[in-house]
Design a protein around this nucleic acid. Structure first.
Length: 844
RNA sequence: GCGAGAGUGGCGGAACUGGCAGACGCGCUGGCCUUAGGAGCCAGUGAGCAAUCGUGAGGGUUCGAAUCCCUUCUCUCGCACCA
């Protein structure tokens, strides 16, 4: 065995070993329990960062641990390969997105393999390959036919100078990222997925997400934003139109003393033709610093009281929510209250607090009473509770044909059209004769053409390609035109986890494969996808279910949102942010000025507080990098990077190397697991070994708290290294400890464990070994430390036999000389005994 | 403003169901070894001379509170005039 721990020799060798034997290749074994372990696939930017390292290290430990538990594990990886950066690279450097993307994938795959991750690369998915996006198109057509994909007019960011559509991330402070021109909103016909049809189901499904962090579920609920209420039509005095409003408080209808419209409500421009007057409202639209209103000069009729009430335009009323118009009930809505006070509008109480015997406040209100209560001043409905009144008023509205109870959602339909090149072509054809026609299934995929010039100027890149857009109509054969927009890349990531389940090219969604592997047992990724990606995936899964592709609704049983990787920032007064390499002895490498150490923040290129995983592997090896990122914090919490901490992890691995070397002198010592070991120190080591098995297993099972699992292994090593065996039996205990320690450390630091495993004379392939099982009898302490408190304060620690009775414990404590001294001359009130742990003596 | 999470040594973090606060690691101190140490090994390390005091602050429940309850402060994240 080598004297030194040479990770740079060991790691590639074992990576080759795993790959050559296809050790991570998974197949169906219906008799075995399955486990689908999935990490969010990366965008192939070309380089992995510490966030990836942490994410994938966590997933890899779980996958390897489950494998050792004898579970059939699926652990795939792929590439979220469509997207804007490839297009930007093309515009800036003239590299074709295809070349750029595939080269990046190659580079990143190498990096991932250097980390020693246990992926089944046979199942690799690359979303920009026609083999993959063909199915995006297939789904799109299926959804179109079910009415779940439709077209409507919507706004996009438009740069007038580049004459192009901009993605949201290309708009910086309202300006174009390339030319700084002011960005306009332009109306375009675009494709949408009708996610609102599933709003109710997606919301109800939230209750089933028991394995998700509560805050993610809450964010999804808020995003869907369900509220129950009513829609009511208010006639306009002297005009034919009606104003439809949405309210969650139909019980307050009698208190509506005015109305407000959003400044961009379609009626606003008709009621106030002078645009100049509306401008100040538009300028402060949605700005909740102050409430601004403008009287339109027109009145509406409150359908309950028949009163004429003024119609205002108001900056706080949003066109995006509800109907863009509200009835204003100043007595029972704080916003309306403030508005009424400002503009001198009448305030009428129609709800009285229940505990006030159903009487209105009497004195003038200083704030709105927003709670529910008893109706007053409400005609036939007076005296009812709010809850009852809502029902009756809703049916009253319905019988009169002026409104009805409705449910409103914040969630909007999902706009998927992108006026970009590097995405899935939307498989639709526009024919002057037949109208909008889907591409026939047999003609899929609609291939993204490669002979395209990307300039960043002009309309959608595909629209500039006549060979792409000109097509004959699949129905009538007439000359027609293809849709030239591409799909949002969130479409790609909404079902990639399904694609991994099958290997066959032609049946990407083999039902039996999906039935076996899905749902994902553990999904791991960043919190930044709490809403969009995870919600879209839940939506897609339901659509597929309704298309008969699969038979479940929730794709991810358990979700772990890992924390960010952070590091302190360093800044030079003259040269700005500095990377770790640019700081020497706390001084700037350019000007030698002292460096200011800033707060700990998420690693980011712009703040230069990044660590390059490749450099780290070169210096310490993948096992050290993995170990540190798992040890420094529990997975769900933010991790603060520490160079010294990395060295600590490296030291730990070296320590293990040296211990194993000390005992692997070529001759094999039989191991033991029996009780009745003579040497008490050896017995203690054996006990510690089994206690560690229990602790490590529990820590992994319980919330994947790898940091404490690793700490337990460190404790075992510490005890192991301070033990000097004197007999064969002692040496056998040492081998038991080493063997189990290697098995438990293997998921965290797989390479070194494989290497040491063969060095203690075992057959190669530590991951073929079962996970160790704790022998409770051996783990049990035969002597305990009995803590003695007097009035809750620690006064003595006595050693006592395990399993002693409470009476004996009490006696032992009271008989202790030190305790007797304290108790002398005091009244004994009572004695509390905690079985096998503690005695608390209460005295006066 | 609303909602969620967090606050523990010099630092990252431990502490089961209320039962020895500070596991493990980093750093620091001393020693050994060494031509040398930013290597390795050994010992120590919450504060305080002590009695004691210590888990953001204040109160409460309890024989006993980092843990449960109330009040309050700070930080992080999410939502935010949602009618």
């Amino acid at each position: 065995m080598k004297e030194r721990y040479e990770f740079s020799e060991i790691e590639p060798r074992w990576q080759r070993y795993w790959a050559d034997r296809k050790l991570h290749s998974s197949g169906r074994h219906p008799d075995k329990k399955k486990f689908y372990c999935l990490e969010m696939f990366p965008y192939p930017s070309g380089k992995i960062h510490m966030g990836h390292v942490r994410n994938y290290a966590i997933g890899d430990v779980i996958a390897r641990y489950k494998t050792m538990q004898g579970v059939n594990v699926l652990h795939p990886m792929g590439w979220d390969a469509f997207g804007l950066p490839a297009e930007n690279a093309a515009i800036k450097h003239g590299v074709h997105p295809v070349k750029w993307t595939y080269e990046n994938i190659e580079a990143m795959k190498k990096q991932l393999n250097r980390m020693g991750l246990s992926y089944d690369w046979d199942r690799e998915v690359t979303t920009c390959s026609p083999e993959y996006y063909k199915w995006n198109q297939w789904f799109f057509i299926k959804m179109y036919k079910k009415g779940l994909a439709y077209k409507k007019s919507s706004y996009v960011n438009w740069c007038p100078s580049c004459a192009t559509v901009l993605a949201n991330e290309q708009v910086i402070d309202g300006q174009c990222w390339r030319c700084d021109s002011q960005v306009d909103q332009k109306q375009l016909e675009q494709w949408f997925f009708r996610i609102t049809s599933y709003a109710e189901e997606l919301l109800k499904g939230c209750d089933e997400l028991k394995g998700w962090p509560e805050r993610v579920v809450t964010m999804q609920r808020n995003w869907i934003g369900r509220s129950e209420g009513a829609e009511v039509d208010f006639p306009i005095a002297g005009r034919p139109e009606k104003i439809r409003i949405f309210t969650t408080r139909p019980d307050t209808l009698f208190g509506a003393t005015f109305m407000c419209l959003a400044p961009n409500h379609p009626l606003a421009a008709q009621l106030v033709p002078d645009k100049e007057k509306i401008a100040p409202l538009t300028a402060k639209y949605g700005d909740y610093e102050e409430k601004l209103g403008l009287f339109t000069g027109t009145y509406a009729v409150n359908p309950m009281t028949e009163e004429e009430i003024p119609i205002y335009l108001a900056n706080f009323v949003l066109m995006e929510y509800g109907t863009g118009a509200i009835m204003s009930v100043p007595a029972h809505d704080q916003r309306d209250f403030e508005f009424a006070k400002k503009y001198g509008l009448p305030i009428r109480e129609v709800i009285a607090p229940e505990d006030n015997c159903g009487k209105p406040a009497g004195t003038e209100l200083t704030v709105a009473f927003e709670e529910e209560g008893i109706l007053v001043n409400s005609g036939q409905f007076s005296g009812l509770t709010s809850g009852e009144a809502k029902k009756r008023i809703n049916s009253h509205l319905e019988s009169k044909g002026i409104g009805k109870g409705t449910i409103n959602y914040k969630i909007r339909d999902w706009g998927i059209s992108r006026q970009r090149y590097w995405g899935t072509p939307i498989p639709m054809i526009y024919c002057d004769v037949c109208g909008t026609v889907p591409v026939p299934e047999k003609d899929l995929p609609v291939i993204l053409p490669e002979d395209i010039k990307l300039t960043g100027v002009g309309s959608s890149p595909l629209a500039e390609s006549p060979s792409f857009s000109r097509v004959s109509c699949p129905v009538c054969g007439a000359t027609a035109r293809r849709e030239t927009d591409t799909m949002d890349t969130f479409v790609d990531s909404s079902w990639y986890f399904l694609r991994y389940c099958s290997r066959k090219e032609e049946t990407p969604l083999e039902k039996s494969d999906l039935a076996y592997w899905m749902p994902v047992d553990q999904y791991i990724g960043g919190i930044e996808h709490a809403v969009l990606h995870l919600l879209y995936s839940r939506f897609f899964t339901r659509c597929m279910r309704d298309l008969g592709v699969l038979e479940f609704s929730e794709p991810f049983s358990n979700l772990l949102t890992q924390g960010m990787v952070c590091k302190e920032t360093e800044k030079c007064a003259e040269h700005g942010w500095l990377s770790p390499e640019e700081v020497r002895d706390n001084k700037c490498h350019i000007c030698d000025k002292p460096v200011e150490t800033g707060r700990v923040e998420k690693m980011s290129k712009s703040r230069k507080n990044v660590i390059d995983p490749d450099a780290l592997i070169n210096r310490y090896g993948a096992d050290t990098m993995r170990l540190f990122s798992l040890f420094a914090a529990p997975p769900e919490r933010d991790l603060e990077w520490s160079d010294k901490g990395v060295e600590g992890a490296y030291r730990f691995l070296n320590k293990i190397w040296n211990i194993v070397r000390k005992y692997s002198d070529g001759q094999q010592i039989p191991e033991t697991a029996s009780s009745g070991v003579q040497n008490p120190k050896a017995a203690s080591l054996l006990r510690k070994t089994h206690q560690t098995i229990k602790k490590v297993t529990d820590d992994i099972e319980k919330d994947y708290h790898f940091n404490t699992a690793i700490a337990a292994l460190m404790e075992l090593i510490n005890e192991l290294s301070s033990f000097s065996p004197a007999s064969d039996e002692d040496r056998a205990v040492v081998m038991t400890a080493i063997r189990n320690m290697l098995l438990m450390l293997a998921p965290f630091a797989p390479h070194i464990c494989e290497e040491l495993w063969i060095n203690i004379g075992c057959e190669p392939g530590i991951f073929n070994q079962p996970w160790p099982v704790c022998d409770e009898a051996l783990a049990k302490e035969d002597e305990i430390e009995l803590v003695v408190q007097v009035n809750g304060k620690l006064r003595a620690k006595l050693s006592a036999p395990a399993g002693m009775s409470d009476e004996d414990a009490k006696k032992l404590a009271l008989d202790d000389p030190k305790i007797m001294e304290i108790l002398a001359g005091r009244d004994l009130v009572k004695v509390v005994v905690v079985q096998g742990k503690l005695v608390n003596i209460v005295i006066k």
